[in-house]
Design a binder for these strands. Structure first.
Lengths: 205, 205
DNA sequence: TATTTTTGGGACAGCAATGTCCCGAAGAGA
DNA sequence: TCTCTTCGGGACATTGCTGTCCCAAAAATA
């Protein structure tokens, strides 16, 4: 190990990922899930869980970080900076749907991002007057939305933030419906894209 | 009413409504809020709260029932059975936005409707194979959606249930954003309607 | 004013979740 | 095989929420 952070040491890395994955998946569906339940879902003893994450808060922070990273990687793979905005947006939706569990975890409880969000990385003492938006100033998703608006493809009367929230919201709803069996898993992306782009109005009408 | 249910007796009715309102408002924003917090928000002693609702479950059921009724009344006032579907839908959105707190409470936690939903009214032992949809068979909102589809106004390739979920989801997001100050309170309805109807595509494009 | 209802708060026991510690067993690596 | 690490589970004290009971004060009603 280098200094403080254990990198990805074969054993600990695997266990750690197992815990984070199980936690995200379970917490997405049952917030307030017990640590014992999370441990069980991860197929790990409660002691082990405590060994990796001393208390609930640290676990939450880690799961949030991990989820943000996972989604980030997925989004990165969509290369939303390239090509026509509409097509980039479709790739983005697909990427987000693929990270279904993480999306449900992060978006399912607004508090989660507020309390354990990226802010933590900057140190917690920083309670500046940041209205909570500038930290997303370089968000590639917002960039894409602005680009689409500038090119006249996306509705410019809607604020980029609102469009972004709509996106998250629809993806979340789609993933959730699929999770409940109300929507076929393979059709989620198409349905979300269709609704997101055109709304519910009949294309014919 | 006469026998078991206390009707609306001036005093008890007022206290009851205060508790239900405060509970919905608080639980909408902080699920897992303590009974003590709810009592405080309702400006009532914890004893009094327990006097009206013996335990947490009964309170939850009551808040759900109350919220469903409140929204129902609001929706009823929108007369969504009359007139062109598109205009009816706009009235519906406006009505739902007006019930912001209740919407946030009911939609914010999917579990809430599953555990304390209308099913409770039928008796809890009824665990028939109802896939959970037939109970909404006569839902006026679904009726409106189907009507709109039949008239060629709403996208017929989207399932009515999906459209309904989209509707709830967008209204929820709008109300939530307004709650956080990200969206001007008076513009929520228009923004939601615009997005819901047309998606994010530029009308010009 | 007198009576009944309603209320608020304190005291209390029960309970489930949490966090800590320890030890023997299983597993990985040399 | 030997050694070091990691693991699972039990035991334990602690904490915070819950639900119950009681009583005096405040409010409503007659």
């Amino acid at each position: 190990m280098s200094t403080t952070e254990s990198p990805e040491s074969g054993v600990r890395g695997r266990t750690r990922r197992a815990i984070l994955g199980a936690a995200a998946s379970l917490l997405a569906r049952r917030r307030g899930a017990t640590l014992a339940e999370i441990a069980e879902a991860a197929d790990v003893g409660r002691s082990t869980l405590h060994r990796y994450f001393p208390d609930r808060d640290e676990l939450m922070r880690a799961v949030v970080d991990d989820s943000v990273e996972a989604i980030g990687r997925s989004v990165e793979g969509a290369a939303i900076g390239d090509g026509p905005p509409l097509e980039a947006m479709r790739r983005l939706v697909a990427a987000m749907v693929e990270s279904g569990d993480r999306i449900m975890f992060l978006w399912g409880d607004p508090r989660v991002l507020e309390e354990y969000g990226p802010r933590a990385r900057w140190g917690d003492a920083a309670e500046e007057d940041c209205e909570g938006d500038e930290r997303f100033a370089d968000d590639p998703v917002l960039d894409l939305i602005r680009r689409g608006q500038a090119e006249g493809v996306f509705d410019a009367e809607l604020s980029p933030e609102w469009i972004q929230h709509t996106l998250w919201s629809l993806v979340f709803t789609g993933v959730e419906d699929a999770d409940k069996g109300l929507l076929p898993r393979h059709g989620v992306t198409a349905t979300v894209i269709r609704t997101f782009e055109n709304g519910i109005r009949s294309p014919a009408g």
